[in-house]
Design a protein around this nucleic acid. Sequence first.
DNA 1: CGACATGTTGAACCTCATCAACCGACGTGG
DNA 2: CCACGTCGGTTGATGAGGTTCAACATGTCG
Lengths: 261, 261
Amino acid sequence: MGSGCLTLKVIIMAQVQNTLPADTQCDHCAVRHKSVCGALSADELIRLNKIASTRKMEAGETILSDEVDVTFFANIVSGVVKLTKMLPDGRQQLIGLQFPSDFLGRAYGKANPYFAEAVTDVELCCFKQDPFEELLQDYPALERRLFENTLDELDAAREWLLLLGRKSAVEKVASFLLMLVRRASLVGCARFNPGSSAVIELPLGRADIADFLGLTIETVSRQFAALKAEGAVDFRDSRHCEIVDSALLSSLAGQDRPTLD
Amino acid sequence: MGSGCLTLKVIIMAQVQNTLPADTQCDHCAVRHKSVCGALSADELIRLNKIASTRKMEAGETILSDEVDVTFFANIVSGVVKLTKMLPDGRQQLIGLQFPSDFLGRAYGKANPYFAEAVTDVELCCFKQDPFEELLQDYPALERRLFENTLDELDAAREWLLLLGRKSAVEKVASFLLMLVRRASLVGCARFNPGSSAVIELPLGRADIADFLGLTIETVSRQFAALKAEGAVDFRDSRHCEIVDSALLSSLAGQDRPTLD
DNA sequence: CGACATGTTGAACCTCATCAACCGACGTGG
DNA sequence: CCACGTCGGTTGATGAGGTTCAACATGTCG
């Protein structure tokens, strides 16, 4: 049960690459409007800029940890980040997957009760904790954006509860792919062909997918094979999945009414 | 799989019992300080009071629904509320359990993507939607309290992801009991004896517990029996559970280090 | 009392985990 | 250059943990 692989808890803090000049950087930022920054006016952004700095992290590095007090929040500018929790005996569960424009860190004091780890190489836009919380006080629009963000995350987590608690292995895997289509397409990780078939890049390896779905590597692999056999998807390689029949896929995911026509 | 019992989606809105006189009611309120109201001064409370009204609902009534636009938020004053989600084929998952002082409803527009149903008889303190959202604008402390609330719910949901994805049946049931001890004791549903043994009242029937833990009624029952056999708990009746050995119980829940002493 | 709801217990079955072999891609060093 | 180990993924055989189905117990309400 579980992955059993106790990941080394080496916390390597990324170096500050670059302190942003006060007024220009955000204009070119890929996530300027989608992220929480979207709540701020140009003037307000300048102040945010003053406490911001870019960091790059390599795939596999730990960004936030259970055990270390973190002194910053961050927007993901590029790359994918996984959030995980672990049982003392090593069993692991992925509790979230974050894409560009998502926000990392728990506001207001309490430590995050989980790990955040870079899945791919990642660019972050980091904000120092204390001054950022001051900003939250001063700019209600910012706080509200962050709040709505959190509400969305809560909804997503609850959707996942349903998946983990009640869905079968195939349904889980199918739902996972659909979730990627939905989320990744917003972020440009997916390219759509005219014929409504899309190729999505799986940001996670089989082990992480398993930990996301509460399954083992082997079952994930088998269910992918099953979906392929059904004609719902096709794989060019283990990381690239073509959605052949998305209607079929979502019926296999158990999300629509059971064909009431 | 799942409970299979498609609960009737009859939405019976409770009658307004009682419009609060502007200044007195809150003083006697059992959850005045624990709930979001705790963020408000006496003056501010008066304004909140103007848009508040008490409602009583009977066990089994639906409070919030997927399919109906809800026009109020609410504090739970007494009783227990369950939040559920359902797959189209009837499989059900409990995604949250709310106690007195907890807040019901999703701020800022979007509909709650779940059901809320009274488990016991429930007293609510309801706030009309639009004026309450105005209050959120005007009283940042209130919004912030609600925000922190939401963050805590998110943490709880993620804890539950780990449980559903990675824990065995015994571990799930044991964790459930411990969760009740932690939460219910804050709310006065539990009475502690000197000898560190406590009797907790299970607010849920076996079916709901099963839907909470992603199990079936039968397994829940068997695991309770197993815990009793181990000497971790004892049952006076199916609804009252005495925690005999809470250290043992939490080790069976898989939450502490595997005895490294 | 009988009808019904709720919970417990037993036996058979099935899904998924476990253990193990295997495959291809990659990198390293002889 | 190829032998070698490693790593990620696939595939097969076996078995355990939970589900399912069914019978039974208990409690409540008419």
